[in-house]
């Protein structure tokens, strides 16, 4: 389990992370979402041991990450800007990874290379950005670490490859009980991949939740009554947003969907429709509930 406590990271006068706290359980796909400069890459570098936090501590299973090879050998970090040795092929890079990571599997490397249809003898620096991303992903997965950190990994991938990458990551998590942390500035990228999601803003996690909970805990309600009514009719309901046009009221509600439906049906409405929300809509309303304007955050 990755634990960050009161982590602060500064670059000269700029505070990249400020008193950040989070806890990432093992065996999940954890999404980090936030706008540019929110601190996603900084956080990934901190939990991969590239940076030492200015304040606070970062631990994996109770052990500090920075300058701790025993912990770092369980981690592979794929940064936004990839690194390959000059003139290196994937085979050459595989040798480097094998030298660095004891758990590196050539068998898995070969399997993944074939799955992605990449030629391991070609100079990586001559291939497209998307293929470089695939190559980096293959190398990371072949190293078979417990923790995989992907920084903006889906950038530059076409939809087919994006799905393939998501699948292999997901399989890795399921089969090996690995933990994957994926950062992205696009919520849609993470919606169908992550188990948990954290929203970073100005160096802090302002919202963190299980995606399934998020998706089911908020829902949109459209309801109409024959008589004249107002918002007060729904007192006792937990609502995040309420609008009414004539006899039709629309609001976002939080709570148990079935219980909600039952209570509303007891009020004998002319019309009742309970709709699921997209993850983006959930975030929109959750952020607003927390006092953030979502458009400023993402």
């Amino acid at each position: 389990m990755i634990q960050a406590e009161n982590v602060t990271m500064k670059f000269d006068d700029f505070v990249a992370l400020n008193q950040l706290n989070c806890s990432i359980p093992d065996g999940c796909v954890y999404g980090l979402v936030g706008s540019n400069g929110a601190g996603k890459s900084t956080f990934l570098r901190l939990i991969s041991g590239v940076y030492r936090p200015a304040e606070g501590k970062i631990e994996i299973d109770g052990h500090a990450v920075y300058e701790n090879p025993d912990v770092k050998k369980q981690i592979v970090y794929i940064p936004d800007e990839l690194y390959f040795l000059p003139q290196a092929s994937m085979n050459r890079m595989a040798k480097l990874y094998a030298a660095v990571y004891e758990t590196f599997s050539y068998e898995r490397f070969t399997h993944l290379t074939q799955t992605f249809g990449l030629n391991p003898t070609v100079n990586i620096n001559t291939v497209s950005k998307g293929m470089k991303r695939q190559a980096a992903t293959i190398l990371a997965l072949a190293a078979q670490p417990r923790y995989l950190y992907f920084d903006e990994t889906f950038d530059g991938l076409d939809p087919v490859m994006r799905n393939l990458v998501k699948n292999v990551i997901y399989n890795d998590v399921v089969e090996r009980k690995a933990t994957a942390i994926i950062s992205s500035h696009s919520l849609r990228e993470l919606e169908d991949t992550c188990d948990q999601l954290a929203l970073l803003h100005k160096g802090g996690i302002i919202f963190e939740s299980d995606i399934q909970n998020l998706k089911t805990s908020l829902f949109k309600v459209q309801v109409a009554f024959s008589d004249t009514y107002g918002k007060e009719r729904f007192d006792g309901f937990e609502m995040l947003d309420y609008t009414q046009k004539g006899s039709v009221a629309t609001f976002i509600a939080r709570g148990d969907r079935d219980a909600f439906r039952e209570k509303l049906e007891d009020m004998r409405p002319l019309l009742l429709d309970i709709l699921p929300l997209s993850l983006e809509e959930v975030f929109l309303y959750e952020m607003e509930a927390l006092g953030y304007a979502f458009k400023d955050v993402l």
Partner: peptide
């Protein structure tokens, strides 16, 4: 930077 991050992330002191 990218090279630096790589060598600083590998499991060696």
């Amino acid at each position: 930077r990218n090279e630096s991050d790589f060598y600083h992330s590998i499991p060696f002191k």
